[in-house]
Nucleic acid binder design. Sequence first.
DNA 1: ATGCGGACCTGTTAGC
DNA 2: TGCTAACAGGTCCGCA
Length: 271
Amino acid sequence: MPELPEVEITRRGIAPAIKGIAVKKVVIRQRRLRWPISAGLARELPGETVDSVDRRAKYLLLGTTAGTLITHLGMSGSLRALSNPGPAQKHDHVDIVFANGTCLRFTDPRRFGSMLWTRRDPLRHRLLARLGPEPLHPEFDGEYLYKSARGRRGAIKLHIMNAATVVGVGNIYASEALYAAGINPRRAAGRISLPRMQLLSDTIKLVLENAIKVGGTTLRDFTGGDGQPGYFQLELNAYDRDGQPCPGCGSAIRRIVIGQRSTFYCPHCQT
DNA sequence: ATGCGGACCTGTTAGC
DNA sequence: TGCTAACAGGTCCGCA
């Protein structure tokens, strides 16, 4: 379920329920995720208090004195704080049970997600150490994006989806931001002017901020804490609209494949 | 260094 | 109705 907005909504949803609370036990039913869950998690997390609930890129970081739990939701993962957890279902792989009875439940049918326990600075973890800037931070701007693209001949869509360039831009928002900026997703990254990169960095911020504002409702099967289904509150102008009229000019939105991922754009408006 | 394809999994939907 | 193929929000890794 994750694009950055969904991860941020998840963070905001679970933080009040678990911050400042001690972990009682960790129940692991399936340790084979993207990477196997290490034995250290169940051994070292119980007894610790969750001091912080942070996000870096699409990773959620639960900080304690002893170490940090780094969680990624992959393609189909979710994390819910339940006060009355029912019996675990098929894909409920991990429960983190707190002293106040709250159960933080990790569910992930495709198991592309991950749960990593580290005793060191999580930002130095090999998966986090080389990440680019956060898209909503000021250091991510047109000038940065322009410079990062010098000499790059690959498609701009792949460039903005590359976590070394900027984190958190997933397949849906890449299409949406490029649509809003009027840039053809296939255009070589290194052949886009500074003003257009300024526009693109702005549209990336806008599209992500808006999605967070409306509750991270990008995804078909995402339901926030209030049970409001996603995908409908957020207006998608290009993504998943193959053959439908472009809101700007009326010509048909087209679906192409870039880097093995579906890509949607308006051949008339995006150059 | 950059760029590309393959890999990891399961579930849902479109098509015959 | 039933079977099969295509496709789905991510991103790491190895090879050219």
